[in-house]
Design a protein around this nucleic acid. Structure first.
Length: 270
DNA sequence: ATGCCTCAGCTCCTGAGA
């Protein structure tokens, strides 16, 4: 089965591109079974449930006016949907989770953080700590867990087009990376790095300065899979093609393929 | 360079993003 995440920077603007992309994935191979979306920038009453239903997807959305907003699309039913981090009061719609098959899927839009030392950076740190504590519980309840979304954090210099120039700037600070590693320490794995990748493998490029054409990007969108799922992963890649669209999102989707058959037939012979 | 795009909205400017 195939799972993906994409920060689409306004679903109102990007809905046709999302539908096109899903169609394209089906046409060239396996359909995307689960898609996590971030930065919907719309309220739930404006969520295009019907358009996705016609494309074969059920949806769980958690929207908000103007900013943030996340959703999960799935070809199969979702249950136990939760919104944001339980026990962490937050005005912003950033997390949506669901049981899908025998997976626990968490889609997240991590805080940007703006600038080290700012109040928004402090909020990012608090949010990251709350996420870690909650995921620790979630993993104990369901070891088959996927955490994917716009993390707004790079793992290391390999994720940064100009590591020297951007050293210690937002998305690249030690504090953010320590938090990201603390998620990894829960028993999660950076799925992209499990497979060979192209050079300059980024998921976001600034709209300004022709950054995409100049390959000046960051890898800040991630798919983390739990230890139990790691042996089942068959591919994970960033698809930069939608970034070449006429009115693109500044982010590209990240796709994970896992061996769903072996999940379904676990314990049965052949 | 307090800039450069893009998006939403109490829309002809501002805040936020990354």
């Amino acid at each position: 089965m195939k799972l993906a995440t994409w920060n689409i920077n306004s679903l109102t603007v990007r809905l046709p591109q999302v539908l096109d992309w899903l169609q394209g994935q089906s046409a060239t191979g396996e359909p995307v079974d689960v898609l996590a979306l971030q930065e919907l920038k719309l309220t739930d009453d404006k969520f295009p449930l019907n358009a996705f239903a016609e494309a074969g997807y059920q949806a769980a959305c958690f929207g908000q006016k103007t900013y943030n907003g996340v959703a999960l699309l799935s070809r199969t039913p979702m249950s136990n949907v939760t919104r944001n981090i339980p026990g962490f009061p937050d005005d912003m719609a950033r997390v949506i989770s669901a049981d899908i098959g025998d997976l626990r899927v968490v889609g997240a839009y991590f805080p940007n953080g703006q600038e080290p030392g700012s109040e928004k950076f402090a909020y990012k740190m608090r949010w990251l700590e709350a996420l870690r504590a909650w995921l620790c519980e979630e993993l104990s309840k369901n070891p088959r867990l996927v955490l994917m979304g716009d993390f707004n954090i790079t793992f290391d210099d390999l994720d940064v087009w100009d590591p020297l120039g951007l050293k210690d700037t937002i998305h690249c600070t030690e504090q953010e990376r320590v938090h990201l590693q603390s998620l990894i320490s829960l028993g999660l794995n950076d799925a992209v790095r499990l497979f060979p990748q192209p050079e300059k493998n980024y998921s976001w490029w600034d709209y300004r300065n022709m950054a995409f054409r100049r390959k000046q990007g960051l890898r800040i969108d991630h798919v983390l899979i739990s230890d139990a799922l790691k042996p089942l992963a068959v591919e994970c890649f960033i698809d930069p093609k939608p970034r070449r669209n006429e009115r693109p999102s500044d982010h590209a989707p990240v796709v994970l393929g896992i061996n769903g058959k072996s999940l379904a037939t676990l314990g049965s012979p052949k």
